[in-house]
Amino acid sequence: MRVEQISVFLENKAGRLAEVTGILSDANVNIRALSVADTSDFGVLRLIVDDNAKAERVLKENGFSVGKTSVVAVEVEDKPGGLHRILSILTMAGINVEYMYSLVVQRNGHSVLVFRFDNIDGAVSLLKENGITVVDGSKVQSM
């Protein structure tokens, strides 16, 4: 049920993000989702791609520090209150969202959001109990 996310450390300098997308593009890696968390000095780029192994390899070859983290992809109803319902369930159970961002494409008419939880297993079973679709890693990559 987990999705593997790749993260890259970037200095806050012009052109660094383009360098990453260039490397991935040259390697024919497709980006499914991404987010950037930034500070005044540096940023962390988080990516869901269609080929993790290849992406990790080409980024490392180009001198980037690459990390791997498990995240959860969740279907969210594309209507008012869709996200709120999910967050309410998690909040009641005391599960913390470290960060979240959304996939570029829709699935089954739903938006797909990527979550990083402090308690992944707890979050996944809780969401399932509440009838919320958690999307499998392989499915996210091939969407």
Partner: peptide, 8 residues
């Protein structure tokens, strides 16, 4: 790699 984290 050792120092890096995806959390800012």
């Amino acid at each position: 790699e050792k120092l890096f984290s995806d959390e800012v």
